[in-house]
Amino acid sequence: MPAVVAVTAVAVGTAVFMATVPQYRDWFDVYVYYGAVDTWIRHGGGIYDYVRPGTGYGFTYPPFAAVCMLPMLVLGRTAAVMGSVVLNAAASAVLLRRLLGGLLRGPGAWVVAGCLFVMLEPVRDTFSLGQVNLALMALVYADRGRGRFAGVGIGLATAVKLTPGIFIGYLLLTGRRRAAAVAAGTAAAATLIGVAAAPHESWVFWTQALWNTDRVGTLDYVSNQSLQGTLARLDAGRPAWALAVLAVLALWGYRVRQAAAAGDDAAGLALTGLAGCLVSPVTWVHHLVWALPAVVWLAAAGRRAAAAVLYVVLCSSVVWLWREDASGVDGFLGGSAYVWICLGLLALWPRLPAPDRAAHLQATARPADRRP
């Protein structure tokens, strides 16, 4: 009975939080997706010609992503929103299973984990925008570069949205060359499907739209929690950003090799998600779902106090306090809070002693991964 009361209290608390705290985004992105494919298929326009009325925002993904979104036209706008919610819920279930499958026991624990998951700002924004990040992340984590179809999920995610391509680099760094080749080949094949379906639009994307960051908003907007966003808010130039990216990639490579030497795939994947958030030119708050496995890893590795603090910050929407003015020391620190979290985790990643590491691996392995 105490367990039932505790689970009920968490569920009620989550419902109150979700009803009173978050800012909801009114399915903004899923309407952009729908408008772009509708313009392309039904009205003879270009995928990248569409701009949502009253805004400057249009479709930013490769044409293959638009091909994947064609079923929305059959469903209609309202059903497309519902489909987005269902897809994100299914992706969340996959991710919770992959990240927590060895840690949770009983339905009550899964209910609590689900409640805690949806309260995270990147997750709730992904749902309310109708974004694709959770689905792509589920593809990557279902794949992990292991198993019969190793690399296929990572390749498909990369073809839909280029940023998951950093996980191909992860496969190379950890010596999984065959999986990396499969991922790269899958991404190339999917991209060619996009070229075949929309040759002109493919040309527009690869020569124009990909390089036009103004299509997704201004780089110095406080929601951009990447290195580029922080430096843009400081009016730093591109050379500074390039040097920062190279430094982060070098640190990422070093940390990943450490994790690989320890046989800790969970840490390697989490570190790669952190690096991807940092080096991408644009990392909106909802893109930070890629950083969440690092918090799970800390908790699983026994760093529960640190994980709890990071969890609270990632639920807090703190960066929006500097939405209007991110100048000054407080704006520099608070307006880029999620950048500092990602950098701090990457730089200070705890290396577990051998006994703790073995226990961690035992806890985080999926049942199918364990040897009898």
Rank of each mutant, 00 (worst) to 15 (best):
V4C: 07
A6Y: 02
A6H: 00
V7C: 10
A9D: 00
V12I: 13
V16I: 12
V21M: 03
D26K: 02
D26T: 01
W27N: 03
V30M: 01
A36G: 06
G45M: 10
G46S: 12
I47M: 09
Y48M: 02
Y48S: 02
P53V: 07
G54S: 07
G56W: 06
Y57N: 04
G58Y: 01
F59S: 03
P62D: 07
F64K: 06
V67E: 10
M69K: 09
L73Q: 10
L73G: 06
V74R: 13
G76H: 11
A80W: 03
V81W: 05
G83D: 04
S84C: 08
V86Q: 01
N88P: 02
N88R: 03
A90S: 06
A91Y: 02
S92L: 04
S92N: 07
A93Y: 05
V94W: 07
L95N: 04
L99T: 00
G102D: 00
G102Q: 01
R105K: 07
G106F: 01
P107Y: 04
P107W: 06
W110S: 02
C115Q: 01
L116Y: 00
L120N: 03
Q131W: 04
R146G: 06
R148H: 12
F149C: 14
A150P: 02
V152K: 11
I154Y: 09
A157I: 11
P164R: 05
G165A: 11
R177L: 06
R177D: 00
R178N: 00
A179Y: 02
V182C: 04
A184C: 04
V195Y: 08
P199L: 09
H200T: 12
S202C: 08
S202T: 15
W203P: 01
T207N: 12
D220T: 07
Y221E: 09
V222D: 03
S223E: 11
A232E: 06
D235R: 08
A240L: 02
W241A: 01
L243T: 01
A250I: 00
Y254G: 00
V256K: 08
R257T: 04
A259Y: 08
A260I: 02
A262V: 02
D264P: 10
A266K: 03
A275M: 08
G276L: 08
S280P: 11
T283L: 13
T283H: 13
P293W: 14
V295L: 15
A300M: 10
A301C: 08
R303Q: 14
R304I: 15
R304Y: 13
A306W: 15
A308E: 14
A308M: 14
Y311C: 15
V312T: 15
V313F: 14
L314H: 14
C315Q: 14
S316A: 15
L321R: 15
L321K: 14
D325N: 15
S327F: 08
S327Y: 09
G328H: 12
G328C: 10
F332V: 11
G334Y: 13
G335Q: 10
P353M: 09
P353W: 12
D356P: 11
R357D: 14
R357E: 15
A358T: 15
T364I: 01
R371K: 11
P372H: 07
P372F: 04
